[in-house]
Write a protein that binds this DNA or RNA. Structure first.
Lengths: 112, 112
DNA sequence: GTAAATGCATAATTTCATTAGGTATTAATT
DNA sequence: AATTAATACCTAATGAAATTATGCATTTAC
């Protein structure tokens, strides 16, 4: 229905959560942060990340600034005011979706 | 990557988990079970459920038996041996994906 | 000098859920 | 008696999102 949608779109929420915590980040940095935070369990591909970032920019959730560091370009992403507000509700929705899945994986037995 | 895939495909894992717990269930029963287990938070649409069930049958994870109860047809689904084995690993993968998301949503601060 | 790491990106495909329908029987309500 | 809600199955078309498979360019490590 829609809770499934929430879980499915968790990548977007993850990106926004990281930006909420770190202020601004560039794409490659986000992939490293996810790997580090999850002890290498989760790996976001760039082919999934960049389209997601671009969509968030198109939707007015993020803005970018570009810098060149050590001869390499870095495109930093930051949450807009709208993006910050959306982040809060998206995190809440994701937590509730995870709680729902948890309830299914760990059912209360009626017959104790 | 693949952890995202796991979370995205959580519907399949939910179905298999319910069948693991309940032995056999029919489609409509599964939608009710999910609603009940999650306190109405999660709602699986039949349009998502039935194609998922049919794919699981096609993949050899489930088998079906049909009965008529009170004038209405019920198509019961059960895990095959292969399906039972797959259920274990899918649940494990889903738990790990949830743990990863949890770690991102609740990061350990390096600066205590 | 070759491979790995850093850094960006897209196109084609596949997978999956949603939207929007459809059929049929029984139980409950008006 | 007629309508609505609940039970029970299903599919087609669309849309959203991730994967697979690439591509380019620079710097660091071997």
């Amino acid at each position: 229905m829609e809770q499934n949608q929430v879980v499915k779109g968790s990548l977007t929420t993850i990106i926004m959560k990281l930006l909420e915590d770190n202020g601004r980040m560039y794409g490659y940095e986000i992939t490293k942060a996810v790997k580090e935070a999850t002890g290498n369990r989760m790996n976001i591909t760039e082919a999934a990340l960049y389209p997601a970032l671009h969509k968030l920019v198109a939707d007015g959730m993020l803005v970018t600034t570009t810098e060149t560091v050590d001869g390499r370009m870095r495109k930093y992403y930051m949450l807009t005011k709208k993006g910050k507000k959306e982040t809060v509700s998206k995190i809440q929705a994701l937590k509730e979706a995870m709680e729902s899945i948890h309830m299914i994986l760990n059912p209360k037995l009626s017959n104790g």
